[in-house]
Design a protein around this nucleic acid. Structure first.
Lengths: 211, 211
DNA sequence: ACCCAACACCTACATTCATAGGTATTCAAC
DNA sequence: GTTGAATACCTATGAATGTAGGTGTTGGGT
C-alpha cells in the first residue's frame, strides 16, 4: 500500500524514498541527464547520498510517470539524443512537502561501533588497522567538506553558484547559509570520528602496556 | 559471486553481512533463542544494529546450515520446545576473522544532512521542527548511552557482566574497556548532533531576524 | 477456569540496494 | 581514420530491508 506513489499531499509517506528527493533536490537547480545525476552522486553530493546508475535510471522513469519530473529529448551530436530531466511544478510541490515533513528516524546500522564494542576478539594490530582506516576515511571526507566550505565562503562553489543563479535575490543569503550549515555538520562529525578513533589507538596502546 | 557463503578464511568477503556478525557477537556471550536475539536488537544493541525478527530467524537457519551456530531443542513448559542457538568453534573463527579484517566503508545515505542543505525549501517552522526532532532523537540516544556507561562503571551492566563471566580473568579489563569505548563514541556522536541541531535553530532565528 | 501479555517462531511481499554486466554514441587525441 | 575515454542509457540478479501479517505456547494474575 505504501511507497507506490508519493503525492505532495501525503507528508507521512513522503518522508520515505529519499532517493527520489535527492534527485528532486539536484534537479531543482538544473535540468540534467541521468548520467549527470549519477556523476553528482559519485562526487560531492555522493557523500551525503549515493546511488548507482542502475537505481537512478529506473527511478527517473518512475518519477516521470508520477509527473514530478519531465524529460526532454535533447540532440546530442549528429545522431544521438539524450534525455534531459527537469523538475515540474508537481515535483516542486513534492520536494516542498518532503522538506516540510519531519523525517522519521531509522534505526542505525553501525558496523564500526558494533565492532569496536567487541575489539577483544581482534588482535591489537588488527584493531589498530581498523581505527587507522576509520581515521583515513574521515580525513578524506573532512578534506572534501572543508574544501566545499572554502568554496562557499569565496563564492567559487560551482554548485552553489548555479543554485544562487536561480534563487531570488532576497533568498540567496538563506540558501548559502543552509548549504554551509550542512557542510559544517559533516565537518563536525568527521572531526569527532577522528578524535574517537585516535582515542581508540591510545586505549589499545595503554592496554598492551598494562600486560 | 559474493556473499553466498562466508568462510572464516576469506577476510575480504567476511567484512560484509554484518547481521551475521552482530548475531555471532551476541551469541559469543550467551546461548539464546531467536526471540531473545530479537529483543536485544529491539533494545540496547538495537541502537547500533537493528534487525526485525523476520530477518533474524532465516539468518539463524542459514548460519546453522553454514555451521557457525548450532541449535538445541530445549523443552519449554509441558508441551513446547524452543531452539536455543549457541556459537560453534567455526562461528568463533568466523567472528575472529571478521574482527581481524578491515571493514569497507560504505557510502553514506544521510537524509537529514541532505535535507538541511536544502532547508530554504522548508518553512522556518518546519525546519525548526525537524531540528527539534533531531535533538529529541539524539537526546534519547544520549540518555541510553550514558546509562550504559554508568552501568559499566558501577559493574551493574547485565550484558557486560554476562560477558565478563565467560572471559578469562586477564582479559576482563580489556573487554570492559572496549565496551565502554564503543559507548563513549556513541555519546560523542549524539552530543555532536545535538550541538549541530541547536546551531541550526539559532541560524534559522538569525535569518528570520535579518528579513 | 479463564484471560492476556509475553514468549517463540514463521511466511509472504514489496522495496531498496549492490554488483555486474551490457550497448551505443561522441569527441578528442594520435 | 582509428583508438579510447567519456558520455549516455539500460537489464539482470541476488541480497538486504521493511512491513505486515500469521500460528501456537506459556505463565502469571483474577
Amino acid at each position: 500500500m505504501r511507497g507506490q506513489f508519493v503525492s505532495a499531499s501525503d507528508p507521512e509517506v513522503s518522508a520515505l524514498m529519499s532517493l527520489r528527493f535527492a534527485l528532486l533536490a539536484l534537479l531543482s537547480v538544473d535540468a540534467m541527464t541521468g548520467y549527470d545525476l549519477h556523476k553528482r552522486f559519485d562526487s560531492s553530493v555522493g557523500h551525503v547520498w549515493y546511488a548507482p546508475d542502475s537505481q537512478i535510471y529506473p527511478e527517473l522513469r518512475k518519477m516521470e510517470a508520477d509527473g514530478v519530473v519531465a524529460a526532454e529529448e535533447v540532440p546530442w551530436g549528429p545522431k544521438g539524443t539524450k534525455r534531459e530531466y527537469h523538475i515540474t511544478e508537481a515535483g516542486r510541490d513534492a520536494l516542498r512537502a518532503w522538506m516540510n515533513a519531519t523525517l522519521p528516524y531509522a534505526r542505525f546500522r553501525d558496523a564500526m561501533h558494533l565492532k569496536s564494542a567487541y575489539f577483544e576478539w581482534a588482535s591489537p594490530d588488527a584493531a589498530r588497522a581498523q581505527l587507522r582506516a576509520h581515521i583515513a576515511h574521515y580525513e578524506g571526507e573532512l578534506a572534501q567538506w572543508e574544501e566545499q566550505i572554502h568554496q562557499i565562503d569565496t563564492a567559487t562553489s560551482p554548485m552553489l553558484n548555479r543554485r544562487l543563479a536561480v534563487t531570488p535575490e532576497k533568498d540567496r543569503a538563506r540558501t548559502a547559509a543552509f548549504k554551509r550549515y550542512a557542510y559544517e555538520g559533516l565537518v563536525l562529525r568527521a572531526e569527532q570520528e577522528i578524535t574517537w578513533a585516535r582515542d581508540g589507538l591510545k586505549l589499545i596502546d595503554d592496554l598492551e602496556e598494562g600486560d
